[in-house]
Nucleic acid binder design. Sequence first.
DNA 1: CGTTAGCCCTGCTGGC
DNA 2: TGCCAGCAGGGCTAAC
Length: 262
Amino acid sequence: MLTGEEIARACVIDARVTRPKKPQVLAAKLPGKKISGVTRRGKYLRLELVGGSMMVIHLRMTGVLTYVEKGAGQSNWPHLSLILEFTGGDSLVFQDQRRFGTAALLTAPEAASLFGRLGPEPLTRSFGAVQLARLVRNRKRPVKSLLLDQGVIAGIGNIYADEALFRARIHPLRDAGSLNEAEVKRLSGAIKSTLRDAIKLEGSSISNYRSARGRRGRFQETFRVHRRQGEPCPGCGGSVEKTRVGGRGTYFCPVCQKMTPG
DNA sequence: CGTTAGCCCTGCTGGC
DNA sequence: TGCCAGCAGGGCTAAC
């Protein structure tokens, strides 16, 4: 249980994890801090600390956080980036194969500034067709790059954008502003159902992702188009195609996901 | 307002 | 079998 733990020591194993800030700051400032809560905003994991500051962790693609209980025994941890040791003897281990992940200690105003730049949370009750319609209105850019823009909607990654657009039967290159009312409604529902299903299956373990309890996710077993280039579309049996949108690999069914409104 | 390119990084894949 | 180029992607900056 992270909430209530007091940090005894912060060991930065790989200095790249704190970029662009200096790694010494964590080791100097974290000891003695108590965790008052654990929350998520977009793709950021937040350890809220008593006093208002915040430890903000972003796993990117290959980061893995593991909660290790006291007396769990020795374990070999490849790609170690950071270890937080708690006064009770438990610890939190951050591994990251590709070293893209980050951990930062932010003051309350710094955190407010970072999270204030993020768009709304798609899984909240207030997010729906009405709010999505406002976000796409007059936006002349591919709907997929809009979905990936964290300042527009928070938390949608490449996998989930592809899968949500397929579920909504919308071509990833459609101009966001060209979506009609029915399409906006389908897309808002598809975003929610895709994210909910992924959470239920504990995420997508394409390579090394593991939950905090060390388990692999299973959402990748249910991908309908993502990374399925050349395979049959589950909707029509046609061939799934691949293209690039905003520099990201993009998978879709050209039959089910039309460029024309409908 | 918007785009693309490049950077960061390492492990896997495919071609020869 | 072994080598090497290319790919994967989230967030950021720079250039346009």
